[in-house]
Nucleic acid binder design. Structure first.
Lengths: 181, 181, 181, 181
DNA sequence: CATGAATGAGGTTTCATTCAT
DNA sequence: GATGAATGAAACCTCATTCAT
């Protein structure tokens, strides 16, 4: 799975062959099919593993009391993931977008829908705690800006001032909130 | 090219075969190679055609005096493109993101770099006219939010209130600006 | 198709590879798939071609007036096919029998069901003309014996006196019938 | 062996995998190779087991005095085997026919050639007792009809009146023979 | 300008068999 | 006896590309 992930990230799913994967992992081609039913199945497992990581983020946000610090957790998670695993994020975004993977992605996401509900709940609570009286209305815009930061960075890493924009984003959403709230 | 575009949008580039394209276009396989050097070449041409469309947007923004209306042009262009050509936008975003297309995309973009400079200039002017004294600093965040709207809509068209968010976005950026400014 | 037929007859369908077929036919593997959708499709076409040959037999029986001579046509057709194309008959019988080919065979047969009706009509007429007042009742036994000759010959060509048994079969069914009827 | 037999009968020998067999039998793949040298070896054993069953038939014919009843034993054995184990018979016939199994079949048959001699002797005695003065000459035709009944039934079970034809066959061969002979 | 037959490298997948445990 | 991870050869099939016509 590690080999597959690295190659998918570097060359894309369709462009990576089973041979690529198994020879990088130093196992036989047959073994791959002993553990995975198909190439698609490998992708499925990778996505599942990725979604599992969300739980950690949710946990950390739940544990933190201060709204401002929760916002910082969210933003710094995003910044870290991007700067440390640019290719990975690129791969994930394109995979989730591509229509031909839609079924596969949907199925993987439905395996634990409560995860997404929990994340959304955390985000709503965050916005409310930051002083928004219409958190539901604000949420999509809030999310859009975060997601857009990801996108613009991925499209042109050197041309997008990720840290600065992140900081600006935090400032904008914490204006008028006591740092220790 | 129309057939290719439709198929790329529906099934993705790698998954679409020359046979798919030519049989949809009701021409022979040989003819495709009479006009295009390779499958990649078809993609190249499609991207070029797409980038040409940017000029129109720039032109319309240049022609409009009111900053608020210019902002509305930008947002409504985005909304229209998304709602009328969801698949197309999805395809474009993924193509631009994917590493294996990077060379191809870069080359297409370098064929007229002034285009992007012009668009950026328009956006800066817009922000300044809307009252931002540090337009350069604001621009990335401004763009991120727009780009993020695109992304969230593409990831889940029915779950993202595109029109509402667009409206909210316009309001936020026009706060304190006279409508006829 | 000729190469495929020969190889299927010699080595069986599953045991014959596309490579076997194309290298015997001295064409590329790709070409086989230009004309046939799959390996199964090749088999389908071969069966169809075989069934077409039935028409010739039916025609010859229709043209002949004498019942005895018609019986001789039927038997000698069987003998000739067996002695001249032992492997071919073996292949056909096993193909028609095998459950995994059932769908394929059924479909091929349904493409012209009138053929089998015509053959059956000819056989009934033959039995009636040979003096059987209950031709319908006799037909299955008549056919069984013919089919059994095929089988026993195929199971052990050198151990089964095909010509003698054929002659005996003709005699038994023409007993009491004037040679010139 | 039971799992193998059932699967071979349903899907054919080549189409059945060792995995199919062992997972149906709920044992490990390794265990299959502990008991059988190869997949072919499993088939070999199955054929041997089948041939052993012939002894029972021979025994029952030897034990019966009345020729007519012996004939009935033979025919009813055939009818029972067909109606109760259609797939099995189909599989056996195709296996014996297929050239690629020839060696294997031949070897299995040579392990007790006396069996076939005994059966043939019984059949000859039967024909003689039924009043045929040239039993040797009649035998192939006699066998052909029986074998043909098997074939026609297997080719189209619902379309072939097995019981009626069996009865007609018995009548024809017992014409003029006292029932208690 | 137009066709489609032809190629062949390379892709995914299957499977009998082996072997360390 | 029993397991199942591991192998690798070989199967079917795909497809971008070429080229004679």
């Amino acid at each position: 799975m590690a080999s597959a992930r690295e190659l998918f990230e570097q060359k894309g799913f369709e462009t990576t062959t089973i041979d690529d994967i198994t020879s990088r992992a130093q196992v036989s081609k047959g073994l791959a099919y002993h553990y995975f039913r198909s190439k698609d199945d490998i992708l499925r497992e990778l996505i599942r593993a990725r979604l599992d990581e969300l739980d950690d983020l949710i946990e950390r946000m739940r544990a933190e009391k201060s709204a401002v610090r929760r916002l910082r957790i969210l933003v710094s998670q995003l910044v870290t993931e991007l700067t440390e695993g640019e290719d990975r994020q690129r791969f994930l975004v394109t995979t989730f977008l591509q229509k031909q993977h839609h079924k596969l992605v949907t199925k993987a996401m439905q395996q634990s829908p409560e995860r997404f509900a929990a994340l959304q709940a955390e985000e709503l609570r965050l916005l409310a705690d930051l002083g928004h009286n219409e958190a539901e209305k604000e949420l999509p815009l809030f999310r859009a800006t975060l997601q857009g930061m990801v996108m613009l960075y991925l499209l042109n890493p050197h041309g997008f001032p990720l840290h600065d924009v992140g900081e600006l984003f935090v400032q904008r959403y914490t204006k008028g909130v006591a740092q220790n709230d």
